[in-house]
C-alpha cells in the first residue's frame, strides 16, 4: 500500500539548490499560495497532460457543444438534480414527522427512489423523447410501451412496499401485549 504521506525529500546536491537571497535583504513579502505536495503536483500535471491530449481530440468537432455537455453534466447534477431529490426527501421526512409516522418514511422513500432511478436512466424512452420513426426503422419495433411499463413497475414497487408495511404492522400488533381493560 502506498503511504499517503510523502517521505522527506532528499537534500539536493549543492549545485542544484536554488541560491537563497542574502539574509540581510530579506523583507516581508505578501503571503503566496503554498505549493503543496510535490508528488501530488507531479501526478496532477501528468493527468492534465493526458486529459489535454484526449481533450484536444474531444473538442475537435463541435467544441462548444461538447464543453456545454461536459461542464453542464456536472453542474446540472450538482446544482439541480441533487438539490431537487434531497429537497424532495427532506419534504417527505418532514411530512412523515408531522404526521407522527417517521418510521414509515422508508416505505415511501425506497419505492420512490427506485422508481425515480428507472425514470432517470430511461427518461428518453419513457418520456417518448426518442425519434419515433428512426427508432422504428432501426429496431423494427416502435418505441412504445415504455411509459406504461415504467408506471407498472412503479405501481408494483409502491404496492409491494405497502404490503410489507401492512404485514409488519399486523405482526407488531399481534406481538403487542393485550390492552388492559
Amino acid at each position: 500500500m502506498i503511504t499517503p504521506r510523502i517521505a522527506r525529500m532528499p537534500r539536493l546536491p549543492r549545485f542544484l539548490r536554488t541560491p537563497s537571497a542574502p539574509r540581510a535583504r530579506r523583507v516581508p513579502r505578501p503571503r503566496r499560495l503554498p505549493l503543496g505536495s510535490p508528488l501530488r503536483l507531479l501526478l496532477l500535471a501528468c493527468s492534465f497532460a493526458l486529459a489535454g491530449y484526449a481533450g484536444v481530440r474531444l473538442f475537435a468537432g463541435d467544441w462548444r457543444g461538447v464543453a456545454l455537455w461536459f461542464v453542464g453534466a456536472a453542474l446540472l447534477h450538482d446544482l439541480v438534480l441533487l438539490p431537487l431529490y434531497a429537497a424532495a426527501d427532506r419534504a417527505v421526512l418532514r411530512a412523515a414527522g408531522r404526521a407522527g409516522r417517521r418510521p414509515w418514511v422508508a416505505y415511501v422513500r425506497i419505492p420512490a427512489a427506485l422508481s425515480g432511478l428507472l425514470l432517470l436512466v430511461w427518461f428518453p424512452l419513457i418520456a417518448g423523447q426518442v425519434d419515433r420513426r428512426r427508432y422504428l426503422l432501426a429496431t423494427g419495433l416502435p418505441p412504445d410501451g415504455f411509459l406504461a411499463r415504467w408506471l407498472l413497475i412503479t405501481a408494483v414497487l409502491f404496492g409491494g412496499s405497502a404490503l410489507v408495511l401492512v404485514l409488519r404492522l399486523r405482526r407488531a400488533a399481534k406481538h403487542r401485549p393485550p390492552a388492559v381493560h
Partner: peptide, 10 residues
C-alpha cells in the same frame, strides 16, 4: 443505448 442521438457529435 436508447438511440437518442442528442449529444453534440458522433
Amino acid at each position: 443505448v436508447q438511440l437518442d442521438y442528442v449529444f453534440p457529435g458522433s
